[in-house]
């Protein structure tokens, strides 16, 4: 028992030494691998390159690993003979979207610039017209509640376009009005100041020029006469005729019927009694110029 003890201790000591040497070797291998990986990742700083190559000189296995890795990378980077697919690609793309020759591309660029310039000119022109004759453009003169804009947007747009066209347009033919004469209620003429019948209140504040179709009815039911007027709508609801054809009303006319017509909609008709002779017309009254 006593004689065996030193041998056991010796064996144990030898095992410990071998383990330490193996640990050191493992650590050296790990260090070498880390250096190799950093080198292959292109992340090894130049000052550590010397350390790598020193390690490789002293560690044969690490040098072999480095060699095989380097060979692997070289093989991956070896160029491949690639076929030239340019012609077939270009022809397929040309079939799908087409190629433009140089002069055509210039023309397209010029066309785009011209279109942009035309658009800017149109905007500028509208601005100038709006400044010179605000009634003839569809732009609002002041801020309006968004709810009004939403509710009256379509009608405003239609009326605006119609009005703008009316600047250049002549008076309409009365035949179109006569066809709608059925809407004229001759028995119950409305009062001249009842403007709500003619103009919905939401749009009554608009100071813009409106295109109205006015239909004058004479007293004699058997000889109705009709005429179309162009009128202004003032902010204070008064309506006045602008047409020179007012004479056609004749002295015998007691009331006229006015229709407001938006694009695509049936006209809203209202009838206005003429003011009695010598009496002042109330606000909202149809008056003759």
């Amino acid at each position: 028992m006593m004689r065996n003890l030193p041998a056991k201790l010796l064996a144990r000591r030898n095992r410990d030494r071998a383990g330490a040497i193996l640990d050191k070797l493992d650590s050296a291998d790990q260090n070498a691998d880390a250096l190799i990986d950093a080198y292959l990742d292109r992340e090894l700083p130049p000052e550590r390159s010397a350390e790598l190559f020193k390690t490789l000189r002293s560690n044969r296995q690490a040098a072999d690993r480095f060699d095989s890795m380097q060979k692997l990378v070289d093989d991956l980077r070896r160029p491949v003979e690639a076929p030239d697919l340019t012609a077939s690609i270009l022809s397929e793309v040309g079939r799908r979207r087409g190629w433009l020759p140089e002069p055509m591309r210039r023309a397209v660029t010029f066309g785009r610039l011209s279109a942009a310039a035309c658009f800017l000119l149109l905007l500028g022109g509208l601005f100038v017209v709006d400044r010179i004759a605000p009634d003839s453009t569809p732009f609002p003169t002041g801020p309006e509640p968004i709810t009004n804009l939403v509710s009256t947007g379509r009608a405003e747009a239609a009326a605006g376009i119609q009005n703008f066209a009316g600047v250049f347009d002549t008076l309409r033919e009365p035949e179109t009005v006569l066809t709608r004469r059925a809407a004229c209620d001759a028995d119950r003429p409305q009062r001249a100041w009842d403007s709500a019948v003619v103009l919905p209140r939401e749009r009554s504040a608009s100071p813009r020029r409106m295109q109205f179709i006015a239909h004058a009815c004479s007293t004699g039911e058997d000889s109705p006469r009709a005429v179309v007027f162009r009128m202004h709508m003032n902010p204070d609801y008064t309506i006045r005729f602008e047409s020179k054809q007012q004479e056609s009303l004749g002295n015998e006319a007691r009331f006229i019927t006015v229709g407001i017509q938006s694009a695509g909609e049936a006209p809203a008709w209202a009838r206005f009694a003429r003011p009695a002779a010598g009496k002042q017309a109330p606000a909202g009254h149809i008056e003759r110029e």
Binding site: A82, T86, L90, R105, V108
Partner: peptide, 25 residues
């Protein structure tokens, strides 16, 4: 993008070999 065929050809020439090598691998 504007339709210049020569420019498209340059793009193809610049990248087709590398893309082919990659796809081949």
């Amino acid at each position: 993008v504007k339709g210049d065929k020569a420019a498209a050809e340059r793009l193809i020439k610049a990248h087709q070999a590398s893309l082919y090598a990659y796809m081949l691998r």
